[in-house]
Amino acid sequence: MPTIPPSLYKSRPVYPGLSWIAGARRHLITADGEGALAVLELLNSADQETRNRAILLYTPGGSKQLGHGAKLAPLLPGACHEFPSIETLLFRLNVELTRANMSTRLYATGTEGFMGQVIALAQGHGVNPLSVKTEHRGSLARRVQCVHCKGFMDGVTTSIVACSHCGISLFVRDHYSRRLGAFQGVIVNAEVAEEIPAAEELYP
C-alpha cells in the first residue's frame, strides 16, 4: 500500500490515523475508497455502545468492485450510508453538520483530496480542522488547483500535468491549501516554452 512520505514541507497536512474520541456522543465518520478498511479496523476495535453512537458516510470511488461497503453495513445497522460520488456524500455531510452539536466528532479517511474536502466543509460549520481525526488510505493522487485559471483537477498522479481547464503545463508544488483542499499547480515552462521536464509518476 502506498503511504504518504513525511514531507520536508510544512504546509503538508499530517494524517495521524483514526482512533475513537472518548466522550463524544456521536461519531460522524466519512470515508472514500480504501478508507473503508480504516473504518473496518476502527469499528472492530469498538464496543457496542461506541458503535451505537457512530454513523458512516461512504463513497466507494475507485474501490467499487472490491465491495467494501457490504462489509461495513452489518457493523453499523441503519447507520451506514453509501453514496455514488464525493459530491453527493458532501451534500449529506452538510446536512449532518447542520444538525450536529459539540459532542459530535468528525472522522475522515481515504484519499487526501477527499479528506481535504470534508475538512474544508466542516470548517464552514465552525469545526476546527485540528479536531478532525484523519487517516490516509488508497491512492496518493492529489487534488490540484491551477494557480493561473483557478480550475481544480482531481486524481493527479504525476509531477507535471496539463491543466484540464486552461491547458497550461503545471508543476505540482508540494504546497497545500487546507481551505481549498488542494495542492498548487504552477506553469512549468514560463521562462522557456520548450523546457518541459518529463512528467514522473510520483503520486500513484
Binding site: 466522550g23 459532542s103 466528532r105 479536531s131
Partner: peptide
Amino acid sequence: GKALGWPGEN
C-alpha cells in the same frame, strides 16, 4: 468538556 468529547481547541 472532556467527558463530552469536546475538542480542547474550543
